[in-house]
Amino acid sequence: MEGNINTAAEVKLNGLHGNAQAINHQTWRERLKSYRRTPGSLLLFLLVGLAALVTAAMLIFLVGYILVNGVPYLTPELFSWTYTSDNCSVVPAMINTLLMTLLSLLVAVPLGVLSAVYLVEYAKKGNRLVKVIRVTAETLTGIPSIVYGLFGMLFFVSALKWGYSLLAGACTLSIMILPVILRTTEEALLSVPDSFREGSFGLGAGKLRTVFRIVLPPAVPGILSGIILATGRIVGETAALIYTAGSVAKVPSGVFGSARTLAVHMYNLSNEGLHVNQAYATAVVLLAVVILINLISSRLARRIAGS
């Protein structure tokens, strides 16, 4: 009770700017006082705060530990053009990662965007096919990457006889990221107001023109955020690539050549256990890429929220 009276008194004191916020606001002293009467609440508050602290501390420790141990080993040799077992250069792996990302996106983005267009713009409500597509997309989201790897090995590598290759890896990954692109594009299309479509139809445009000229352009930032999310997954992927793209540590001459990406490179370095320092440095490079991707995606999310 006392706490409430205090609050009321304070509202009177702060009367000049006493708004709804001030009524709901408790000062720290009032809080402490109320905690004295309800120790259970204090305990819960401490537990909740502690958990958040642990989460934040773990991340800071992980990133900090790897940076502190890895940054001193970011030597020029680590970035030489060709890989040898002495310099453990990450450059070929970085180029392979870039190629792998581009190739996977090239397959998955058109498929994902066009299927989202079908789901949002063309399919009628309650269409049974749409339900099936939703369920399959959700299933694809939940499948672990090693199962994708197995499938890629059985289908692209063996059945289609592509061998361990950039193409087999990229096709495997494109199935993996398809649901990500599909879902983000769908959300972006759904957030385009219906009045846009009605206006376009009202001016006599056909369905196709409406989709490509009116509905898709405002959805681009949303689609981009999906692409960035997918890029993050490709860059970090290992299990789906070991038995599809193989682990040759140089840039292949074509899409049918075997290529290891940065994450696979990191796994091999750490597994061999001979080049721990270089493994630290490679982890720094990987972390830097991931942090960059996260920065871009959060900036993009802010822009979408702002517009």
């Binding site: 958040a52 991340l59 530990y65 141990n69 990191m266 750490s270 630290y280 990987l286 996260n294 995606s297």
Partner: peptide, 25 residues
């Protein structure tokens, strides 16, 4: 404003990096 990006980053760190952290720490 700080905690949310941190959780996002935790989700984005590749599993090999987690594995390596596991090995060395």
């Amino acid at each position: 404003r700080f905690l949310k990006p941190m959780v996002d980053l935790l989700a984005g760190i590749p599993s090999v990096v987690y594995g390596f952290f596991g090995v060395v720490v």
